[in-house]
Amino acid sequence: MNHSPSVIEFRKVTKRFGDVVAVADNDLAVKAGEFLSILGPSGCGKTTSLRMMAGFEQPSSGEVFIRGENVTGVPAYRRPVNMVFQHYALFPHLSVADNVSYGLRQRNPKPARAEIDRAVDEALAMVRLEGYGKRRSYELSGGQQQRVALARALINRPAVLLLDEPLAALDRKLRRDMQIELQNLQRDVGITFLLVTHDQEEALSMSDRVCVMREGRIVQTGSPRELYDQPVNRYVADFVGKTNFFSGPTGAEVLSIRPEQIEIAANVNALPEGLMARLPVKVLNRIFLGEHTEYVVASDKLGEFMVMAPRKSEREAGVYDIGDMIAAGWRAEAERILPNT
């Protein structure tokens, strides 16, 4: 038996739909117990990858391994993974309890009634829905339905929990709460989570590792910090967090400087020591964002760029108005030269 520390592994997986290549020759290994996100814009192949793990799609070429076992060609109902669907896909004709117990009831032999009931109670308690068992899914709020979908998947103790844009349908506040809840849940149950999202903030805040995809290919995989600080190219830098790009002389490379690493002051002399660049700039726009303020400034040499000023610095240096002539600068380590791809 081919034993591997990965719970799920893609080996040279390609998926074509007609002439369209949705996933191109990807290798990916999901480690046991981690929270991995696949991040990318719509159409990048992230959902197709997830569906190939679940077994709803089969690769055109390459192999899929789950817990070291080659499951290529194995249908969804025989794979030890479970999924939380984007719109939850709860069974409308079943009660909450029957939705949650659905997976257990498919087992052969079927567990005893009492055992199922106990497992359902535990699962509902885990997602803080005690006493909701008799309800119908359409009687619940979006967040509650989300938690039922989680309970329905987790009750089966899957090798990996697959989450397909699970928070997309929730409003902003609820999304924040659920992000925290998902993280806690993952830590409590110790199950590997694999989340697919187009929301970089969601991916960065929850995951141990993030895998960035573009046009069917994996561009970079790493911890959120690695992706943010050491993006492999312009695409990753742009997708993960905000940044300023300045074109290089050949066009093959760009200079990336994160807006929060740029310092501003009333004039060039007021900028701190040790900066690599010091420029006089004009304030074009200012947006107050609470914990920080976002400025758009313009310099004669470099054109427009964005600066993120923390609240703390404002208290020291004050707030600048649109049209003010001020100064901006950054340290050498803030500069990152990236391939322009």
């Binding site: 109902y77 993974v81 709860l90 659905y102």
Partner: peptide
């Protein structure tokens, strides 16, 4: 009928026959 319900059923371990009968 939402086709995702059929996928959800398969995902939870139901054979095609059981998915047909139960969903």
């Amino acid at each position: 009928l939402d086709k995702r319900l059929l996928e959800a059923s398969a995902d939870l371990g139901a054979t095609p026959t059981r998915t047909f009968l139960q969903v």
